[in-house]
Amino acid sequence: MFAAKFEYYKVNSVAEALQTLRAHNGAKLMAGGHSLIPLLKLRLARPAALVDISGILDLQGISVDDTTVHIGPLTTHQTIAASEAVARVCPLMAEVAGEIGDPQVRNRGTIGGNVSHADPASDWPTALTALNAQFVIQGTGALHRRVTRTVAAADFFTGALSTSLGEHEILTEIQVPVMNTAQHSAYAKMAHPATFFSVVSAAVVISMSGNRCTQASVVLGGLAPKPVRAASVEEALIGQDLTADNIAAAAAQVSNDLAGEVMGDIYASAEYRRAVAPVEVKHAIYHAAGLAHS
């Protein structure tokens, strides 16, 4: 639990961060350090240099306009969980933030650090995919000019511990569409008792007209190396009244969406995770629709 030697740079701007990344091969960015420091202490990660971005003020905080919630990547989970603005315009984010880890983790860990680490068992990738979030990334192009690009959540997460972030790039903003009054959301998670990481989780955003589901976004986490959009469940929900039978039938469709790789470990096998995925999907739909459980 003692890190190998590394150089440490504290930077105060995105430009400085990018410059420092370029100057040091194999350098790693550190925000809250909640994913990186354990890896350093176990000597599983041995970067030559750490670039501490936690002091970059431009990357902190939440702002909301008519269409979008803008989240600075250095915003802590706790700040998001406690934000009245987030609770009003994107309650799914507040719900998810409040369920991450424990108070210490929520007070130190940041949303940007979390998504950049892209642990398949963490909660943000699942929720942000369901919310169709956009990730704003800055890098350096020709002649050292700053280049900004925007990536959809579905493209940002590319595998276990893997994202579309380039070696010399930095995540500068997460943009989440504001939810309208017809939209309802919920996050259901079977949590690992040691870490509260998800074993199986489901994020659901549905639009309702009366009791009818008019739109649905259903994404699963914890099962596969990256978030899985449950397109079959979405299709089965849209246009249906949210009755107990219809919800159960739609949730059962999730097996079609899990045709690919499902992970297993000593706590929960792949077979079990597949089998209980519909349960979490069902729980999330019930909560989103404000229905009492059967």
Binding site: M190, Y267, A268, S269, Y272, A275, V276
Partner: peptide, 10 residues
């Protein structure tokens, strides 16, 4: 664990 219980039930 939930899995053991689930397997017993099913």
């Amino acid at each position: 664990t939930p899995e053991k219980v689930w397997r017993a039930i099913h």
